[in-house]
């Protein structure tokens, strides 16, 4: 992925395929750290799946053996010495929290997040998307 807005698009598409009706994407930049939160009310994952979901050699989708989306995001986060956390509950949804160190040489650009949110909104009109960007460069 060239930039974070593409990672976000990829993760939110996962939320949609998990049956989410509400998805929030929040970005907050503070003291040189970019915090990302993606939260949905999709079908969620149990602990067994959750432990494996960031492995590139696992997918929760039926008939698939590989799933790269979450593992690529986690890799992008850890390359900047940031942090990555995923919580999920069956029947309630999933929440991803990540932080990126913005001045790290491996930090990807944010990219066109406006285009990402616009495409999501237009292609999934039945889903409510909440998008917030707060902080220094908002």
């Amino acid at each position: 992925m060239e930039d974070l807005s593409l990672h976000i698009l990829d993760i939110v598409e996962n939320s949609i395929r998990a049956g989410a009706e509400h998805v929030s994407v929040k970005l907050n930049e503070k003291d040189g750290v970019l915090f990302l939160s993606i939260e949905d009310d999709g079908k969620g994952m149990d602990k067994r799946i959750l432990q494996r979901v960031t492995s590139p050699f696992y997918s929760s989708k039926e008939g698939k053996k590989f799933g790269l989306g979450l593992s690529l995001l986690k890799h992008a986060v850890l390359e900047t010495k940031g942090s990555f956390e995923i919580n999920s509950s069956v029947g309630k949804g999933t929440r991803i929290r990540a932080s990126f160190i913005r001045n790290h040489p491996d930090m990807k650009p944010l990219g066109d997040i406006s285009l990402t949110m616009k495409m999501l909104r237009l292609s999934h009109p039945g889903i409510e998307f909440i998008y917030e960007f707060t902080g220094n460069s908002a």
């Binding site: 992925m1 698009l9 990829d10 598409e13 799933g67 790269l68 989306g69 285009l115 990402t116 292609s123």
Partner: peptide, 12 residues
């Protein structure tokens, strides 16, 4: 097609 592979190659 908006899988990870599609997004990485320009589907947006």
């Amino acid at each position: 097609h908006m899988g990870t592979c599609g997004i990485a190659t320009g589907s947006r």
